[in-house]
Design a protein around this nucleic acid. Structure first.
Lengths: 149, 149
DNA sequence: TTTAAAATAAGAATGATTCTCATTATTGCA
DNA sequence: TGCAATAATGAGAATCATTCTTATTTTAAA
């Protein structure tokens, strides 16, 4: 799903399902996230498009999150990061640089992913949990932060 | 490492290594976390021992985190959770109930854990990251929250 | 003991996020 | 097309977890 038109159709129906409209501001947010290769903070989003109002950006990202189009990523960093949901981007994981807070996406091989999911399902069952998703983060230091050490 | 004396010795040396003392307040925090079967928020910690000052609890948990004795767990929940570091508790993962924010620990089988770690190491190398740790969270709904739905 | 350095605790300050509310845009309907 | 009724917007205020400040107390070592 790299095509903006397809994405727009999906987001439209996701928003509709929760009684929300796909407005211009929301389109701009989706478009910014689609063009980015990595999760962005609100600050970064507002730098990319300074015409967006901060309060509206927060509100709209929350609406898009409730619709299931956007995911909010919380780390030890002060700022939350936002990216398109897996229904749009594909299932993936995050590698986080703890010095600078930068987040990159990565994929695990199909087979490792399947093994993992089977184990996780078993654990959730034993604990009586209904599973929505899992989250796998690598925490370390990126090349450029290592250089500055 | 379930023995409080052993834990105290380890924490003492961990604090010492970063030039910090193992004071009474810090002992109380470690003891509270040792007695808890799950990660606690500051609020919960202060409820367990109301004689602790909030500002000191924050400062001391940060000191203990810098020493590597305590880990701060950040989720979508408003409050961070704290638990003893893996050097004390053993490597494990978290299952998070998104409605109520509760966090429980779980373990993965040795073999799954090894498979996973090998893959993660490879990914980090490819991206030029130095890895500190990984974090695997399950997100879902616990039995009692499901009951209230 | 004395003293210098570290820890404590109370409250103030910070800052990301959320809320409020007056204004503007959009939708459905006559 | 025109008109409510409803939803979205944006500016700034409010919230609240966390961090900072500072005066006081505790600790460790000589």
């Amino acid at each position: 799903m790299s095509n903006e038109i397809e994405v727009d159709q999906l987001v439209t129906s996701q928003l509709e399902a929760v009684g929300q409209r796909y407005t211009n501001n929301r389109r701009r947010l989706i478009s910014i996230l689609l063009l980015s290769s990595k999760p962005l903070t609100i600050t970064q989003i507002l730098e990319i498009d300074p015409s967006l109002a901060q309060s509206s950006a927060y509100r709209n990202l929350t609406a898009l999150e409730e619709a299931g189009s956007v995911v909010r990523i919380v780390t030890s960093d002060d700022h939350a990061h936002y990216e398109l949901a897996e229904e749009i981007l594909e299932h993936h994981h995050h590698i986080i640089c703890s010095p600078c807070g930068e987040i990159l996406d990565f994929h695990l091989s199909e087979s490792v992913e399947r093994t993992l999911e089977a184990s996780l399902k078993k654990v959730a069952d034993q604990l009586g949990f209904t599973l929505d998703t899992h989250r796998l983060d690598l925490i370390g230091t990126c090349t450029s932060c290592r250089g500055n050490a």
